[in-house]
Design a protein around this nucleic acid. Sequence first.
DNA 1: CGAATGTATCCTAGGATACATTCGGTGCACTAGT
Length: 508
Amino acid sequence: MLEQALRTHFGYDSFKPGQEEIIEALLSRQNVLAMLPTGTGKSLCYQLPALVTEGLTIVVSPLLSLMEDQVQQLRSSGMKRVASFNSFQTREERKRTSSLLPQLDLLYTSPEMLQSKWLLERLEHVTVAHFVVDEAHCISHWGHDFRADYLRLKQVKKQLGDPPCLAITATATPRVREDICEQLDLRHRLDVIHSVNRSNIYLQVEQHERTMAKLERLSLLVGTLQHPGLVYVQSRRQSEELASRLKETHPHLRVSHYHGGMENADRLLIQQQFMADQLDLICCTSAFGMGLNKPDIRFVIHYHYSLDMASYIQEIGRAGRDGGPSLALLLSTPEDVGQAKAMLERGRLQASDLDWLLAPLQEGEALADDWFEQRFEAFGAGNGMWKSIRFLLEQLGAINEGVVQPLDRYALTEALAQKLTNRYAEREERLRAFLSWTERTACRREGMLRYFNEEPLSQHPCCDKCGGDLTLFQAKEKNHRPDRFSWQEELALLFGEREEQRDGGPYS
DNA sequence: CGAATGTATCCTAGGATACATTCGGTGCACTAGT
């Protein structure tokens, strides 16, 4: 019966590993925590149930671009009872969508939008069949820092009658999985956890003495490796500078940059050019890549340290979706350690800062919606930190329905400082663990898998510690056919002459 | 931690130098005036 639906709605004959299990659990009204490797059809796990069940499936997605992509994709394949609800749409469009709710199968929206009373009231009059959190690791990675509305999803879910919930992601450490379940209150659930290992990605770390040497190494690699590829850097400015530098030194390469400070239109353009094979290389910050579904990325180079193993795996996991041999390389210098640590320190609040920030709170005062935002701006702390503090204060009972409760100021600051201290300590521990992985003398894959509580496995080629050679990834054979060759055969094929220089093309 | 920017000081006056300060990533939603 499920296969029938799979065939009629999606045109596939059989399920990929994990899919059927997840779908059956959802249909029997069970909660599910799922970790499936990228490219194994995660979205089908909730799209199919949404189509065969009465009621609305709500999908919480972290990025507007992802929502719009998915909706467009579904619509173009004939599924019309699908919509998104976010700030991308006009007020009128949103009104229209809300009036159509009872007839919809799928609604994509953001955690922030689900805080809108207006929307919630309308959702309460609809039968919600499933509550889905896509890219669920964001709950843990972003929820505690600058998107606190991720932590309010538990309440939203409850308000919607506690429908069966699916939290799905490609990469979550055991600790993050625990956090996801806690934040979504996922009890009595099925866990479908597949390995994070990507056997076609070769792992290497190189320590260089000086920045100059690191840059020269990068330049050399970029000129010889098979494309397309990504270079992850620490800052926005660096992504721009590095891109323009590489453009100069490698005029035949089509290079661009990408970061969160760019105009939406530019970001979209770069992403589309990359997808359409009009770019060979993108120098980017961590803003680039989520939801990116390009199958043939051949290398991901880190020009700085990631702040934790999970982020690193997310980023390198964008390589080799086609199963073809791909390279994950981290280039570092001793001074990069300090910069990574500084990144964590940034915006760290001390007890005295909390004293200042909370000083004006008066018992019984009804706070304006933007009170925290204003206060944090006056303090000089940008982005969404205020959301996190406000959330914690609500949790501690200091604020209820926007009204300041009777408070023991000293005890409150203490409790808050303690929570923040714990959070900072966790982040430091995650960075420490990642740094020690980069300094490993034994197999890197083994270290990575152990971090995910997985049993190590041996494979060849594996990583620089197991003996390997980057010449294997040098450009030459253009038409590799991953479906027809094993990993070993591919590598054998890769041995040979370099790819000819190609013509320039349209690039920014 | 280190790179970039800002400020003070030198003293035939604007350009060099030294020291101090700031900043560095990830996204949603929204305003108000056209």
